[in-house]
Nucleic acid binder design. Structure first.
Lengths: 339, 339
DNA sequence: CTGAAAGCGCTTACAG
DNA sequence: CTGAAAGCGCTTACAG
């Protein structure tokens, strides 16, 4: 017989002269094990570097010790930072993080139809991904607690953690209005697949509401694809028009950074000739002295992890269903009163 | 939550009047099932929307369908991008990615002592993490194929994928020398815990070799902690000295971006008064018009995934033991001949 | 408090 | 080609 390379529960039990049932109970902190036995088992497990088999545990009705985290992409500052916050909390309690990326609508479709996470995780955190009614149903069919970070507010009782994107946009536009701007354009970012992302829509709404309240009926709007290049292109479009607005509200810092690049290349002074403001407080925003509305990103990941971990407790946890984190205006050198 | 549906292999078997052994064989395309039986089984499985339980399958079969990926952090462009490359390949073949972060030496120590990935994954990709002899041994004790991305070259036959950091530094410094600089300083980044990271050491070596070859015996060197703020601080130190070098080679783009920030605030013209060059081609490098040496990051993740997936094949795969990807000088506006 | 035993849902020799 | 049966490594009633 080929020697087993992994130590299993039986090895731990034999080492202590107890049954595997007691080992199982002790390791999971279940009641019904005397303190002395529990101690012997715990140290034997440590000495043998025993790790419970998630497969067997799950198969016999236990948990997997894994939580799935679903993000659109990883190689984007926002998602990577949310993920870092989640990982912080998971590390602390020894939960394994199974990562799923859904870069486009086809990947999303496949994900919700096949449910590849099925039976593999105890819970799911889903970040930003827009969910149709059917997708929400499919998510429920995973049969595990689910927490949303960002995205549209879920209709049911699914916990949600995020910021108020409409308020964030209002804070940005409000700042421009307050220092005297009226001719404010917005560079909006849109998904090239036409998917409606909650944050996009809310920021656009926030912009229009503020402008309407300030008595500007039809502000200039440019729509570009996401990303720095999109922002650069958006500003090129604005520059090609007959009249330059005195300020531009950008959908996000990435858009704003692209806009700044275009302005620098065109020799247009910021903030002397035009003010620029973004949303996010991306690390590059400070470098470029970009005024922006900061959101706590890592914290969103942390809270989502805490929420999901709480839902896994026997008592079901006590997280509020909806947690809205504050956003904060950060004034730097890219905004000033109009000339 | 809606309860998970529970159609199992026995249901399919009963529906066809065959044994679960035949169902198992048919579903996995194994030989030893008559075409007629196979057809009956396949359509019954489809009608019942049967999905194999991965837990049970793996408990009997052996493999987990999961690969662990170990990175120092996620919320850093380099690691997030490597991860994205890995995820690309894993998604294509349905392998699950279990993420581990080791932010500091204490986390690394815990990881190698406890081996939390044990029994949980079929293979491991370890990114950049410096490995002591003991840690390499521990990694081997996981008993699964392991692939390194970056970091010191492993002594054994562990596959390695990365760039030649010494060459990258030489490309950067070579460019400065070629356009006429001789008074070149380096801002080196060091780990605040004193850990020796392979890339750091190699870039420093590349710098000194080039300078020595150019006849400069003792170039100016400043050592700062990693990150943008470190770079900013390093440049402040250089500015405080009696004589400003004509060019600065920065350990990485992040260091260079911090240096550029300091120079802008101090009103020192780049590249008129001083040239600055980095390494990486970080997304912000283009924004800041920073000359740099680009490395293919996502590709490193992709190749690591391909390598590890190959090692999981029955034939053991045929990946070369060591793959060095090319780096490339990208000239932008932060470098020019000395005044 | 503790253990023997019955599964959980599969895969895989081993027989027929 | 096909099936009965022995696990894989756990959890959890059920007894003692």
């Amino acid at each position: 017989m080929i020697p087993r390379q992994t130590v299993n529960m039986t090895d731990v039990a034999q080492r202590c002269g107890v049954s595997i049932a007691s080992v199982s109970r002790a390791l999971r902190g279940e009641p019904g094990v005397s303190p002395a036995t529990r101690d012997r088992i715990m140290s034997a497990a440590r000495e043998l570097a025993y790790v419970v088999s998630p497969e067997a545990s799950r198969l016999s009705g236990g948990s997997t010790g894994r939580v799935g985290v679903v993000v659109p992409r990883i190689d984007a500052w926002f998602y990577a930072t949310v993920l870092a916050g989640v990982a912080d909390e998971f590390d602390a309690v020894g939960v394994d993080l199974v990562l799923c990326t859904l870069p486009d609508s086809s990947a999303r479709h496949r994900f919700f139809e096949a449910l590849p996470l099925r039976r593999k995780v105890d819970a799911v955190i889903i970040v930003s991904v827009p969910l149709s009614a059917r997708e929400r149903t499919r998510l429920d069919q995973l049969g595990v607690p689910t927490v949303q970070v960002g995205g549209h507010h879920p209709p049911g009782r699914r916990p949600w953690i995020g910021i108020d994107d409409e308020l964030a946009a209002s804070q940005a536009v409000g700042h421009l209005l307050r220092i005297g701007h009226r001719d404010i354009a917005m560079i909006q970012a849109v998904d090239h697949e036409g998917t409606a992302w909650a944050a996009d829509e809310a920021r656009i709404r926030g912009f229009h509401d503020q402008m309407t309240a300030a008595g500007v009926a039809e502000p200039t709007v440019v729509r570009v694809p996401w990303g720095i290049d999109g922002g650069a292109h958006g500003m090129e479009t604005l520059l090609s028009r007959s009249r330059l607005p005195s300020a531009v509200f950008c959908h996000s810092d990435e858009i704003a950074l692209g806009a700044l690049r275009t302005l620098r290349k065109a020799g247009v002074g910021v903030p002397q000739q035009i003010s620029v403001i973004g949303v996010d407080d991306h690390p590059s925003a400070e470098l470029s002295e970009l005024t922006t509305v900061a959101q706590p990103v890592r914290e969103q990941g942390r809270l989502a992890a805490v929420s999901v971990l709480g839902a896994l407790q026997d008592d079901g946890g006590v997280m509020p269903a909806r947690t809205t984190l504050p956003t904060r205006l950060v004034i730097r050198n890219s905004t000033a009163p109009p000339h």
